[in-house]
Amino acid sequence: MNIEQVLFGAFAFLTLLSAGLVIFARSPISSAMALVSTFFFLAGIYVLLWAHTVAALQVLVYAGAIMVLFLFVIMLLNLGDELPGSRLTFSRILGGGAAAGLFAVLALAIARVPGRVADLGTQQESFGTLKAIGASIFTTWLLPFEAVSLLLLVAMVGAVVVAKSRI
């Protein structure tokens, strides 16, 4: 058992644990904090997949920006704990069944994925670096990149218009 397997096991366990906390925590603040830790552990998983740039972006954008937005909204709305409802309602059983069924279908599909992994070989040094991804974004994927910048602008204007009570 080498260090990569140990790290993967630890990060995967902690990711699933904090994802469970997001779902089952009673107060929204606890959910948000558990979500932050989920993002950090997922960033660790990304590093194991040689995706250093995306791991850094994950921490910066998700754990930094998006979660601050969530926390601001939770504090702005001043939400209390959710009242404990009946523990096992029909919709909960249905939701659990649907999630378990989807997982079973996905697991059957994943079991058929070939286990062959490409040898990084010569691109061992450059795979997943900002240089490689940036070259790809600004040549092949330039139009989607510009579309994303437009999307962010529209989302920003839309968020201000929707959330403001009087303009």
């Binding site: 997949l49 040689w50 995706a51 740039t53 995306v54 972006l57 994950q58 954008v61 998700y62 920006a65 998006i66 937005l69 969530f70 909204v73 062959r116 992994v117 490409a118 040898d119 990084l120 691109q123 795979f127 997943g128 490689a132 991804i133 790809s136 974004i137 092949t140 994927w141 989607p144 990149f145 994303v148 999307l151 962010l152 529209v154 989302a155 920003m156 839309g158 968020a159 201000v160 218009v161 929707v162 959330a163």
Partner: peptide
């Protein structure tokens, strides 16, 4: 992306993060 050894998956992940940011802003509004 790691399995195929190309970086298109990384580019897609960057786009997904950007769209998630837009979605969070509008949704929270």
């Amino acid at each position: 992306a790691r399995m195929r050894g190309d970086s298109i998956g990384h580019v897609s992940a960057v786009f997904v993060i950007a769209v998630a940011a837009a979605e969070a802003a509008v949704g929270l509004a």
